[in-house]
């Protein structure tokens, strides 16, 4: 290639420099927050004069924070399960059948990805107010599901695409009923795609904030919403520790997803 890294000569160092700056730009705030969450300064002084775990202790003993954490986890798990199940059904339908309006339906399924989240949030808020769903777990779940589902459909659809449907024929002629074929052959073959869909769905729900702000009530809110609303009142290192937890969990799931991707390529 013309712009091969090995052929860039002196330009190479420039490239490395730009890359480093961008990386620092992206990573420094997170490192900064993580450091502050362990610092013993009430006023978020940087660099921290000393180190402490007290903000984490406060975080995990304050019922408001703990409740938010639990709500986030609960919503995330339910959204994950629903998103994978519905995504699987939709992807199977789109991949294995031919019907009128299929491509239109396919495009429709993906609209939440391109629609601005705020627009979606306002629309859902107005609608859910009528139904009395704001401030409920159901409201959170439906809202997050709408954003997560397209990712599930795409991820599972891709793994169905690379799956040879002759395997289904082979299983069928071996005596397996259509349901058994799906259960014993199709699902195991696309399981990595389903894991990936699950992780993405959870992550989307886990750090979703725009929709959640509209759905939240004083008694029911997710971790990102609580961080945001606390931030508006006062600046405490507890926010830093909550944010660090949020990021840490996200990183763990991302690593898991990339391991899965590596596994599926072997």
């Amino acid at each position: 290639m013309l712009l091969d890294y090995d052929r860039l000569g002196g330009w190479r160092w420039g490239l490395v420099g730009v890359g480093t700056v961008v990386m620092l730009f992206l990573l420094l705030p997170i490192v900064f927050i993580a450091a502050l969450s362990f610092g013993d300064s009430q006023w978020l002084v940087f660099p921290p004069p000393g180190w402490t775990m007290q903000w984490y202790q406060q975080l995990l003993t304050d019922p408001v924070w703990v409740n938010a954490l639990l709500t986030s986890a609960k919503v995330g798990v339910i959204v994950t399960v629903l998103s994978v199940v519905l995504g699987l059904l939709a992807a199977l339908g789109l991949a294995r059948s031919r019907f009128f309006g299929k491509s239109a339906l396919q495009a429709f399924f993906l609209t939440p990805m391109v629609l601005p989240v705020v627009v979606l949030a306002v629309a859902l808020y107005a609608f859910f107010l009528k139904l009395g769903l704001t401030g409920t777990l159901t409201g959170f779940v439906i809202g997050h599901l709408i954003i997560a589902l397209p990712f599930s459909i795409i991820t599972i659809g891709n793994s169905l695409q690379s799956f040879d449907s002759a395997l289904e024929d082979a299983a069928m002629i071996c005596g397996a009923s259509p349901l058994e074929v799906k259960w014993r052959v199709t699902l195991p073959a696309i399981r990595l795609g389903m894991f990936a869909a699950a992780i993405f769905s959870f992550l989307i729900s886990w750090d979703e904030v725009v929709l959640s702000i509209f759905m939240a009530s004083p008694t029911l809110q997710t971790l990102p919403v609580l961080i945001w609303s606390t931030l508006r009142q006062d600046l405490t290192p507890v926010i830093a520790s909550a944010s660090t937890l949020l990021v840490a969990f996200t990183v763990v799931l991302m690593l898991l997803a990339s391991f899965l991707k590596k596994g599926s390529r072997q």
């Binding site: 040879d164 024929d169 082979a170 299983a171 069928m172 002629i173």
Partner: peptide, 16 residues
Amino acid sequence: PNKRNIGMVFQRYTLF
């Protein structure tokens, strides 16, 4: 097809 009790080998590799 799944009740015909016929064996089949395909051109493509179809082991699970």
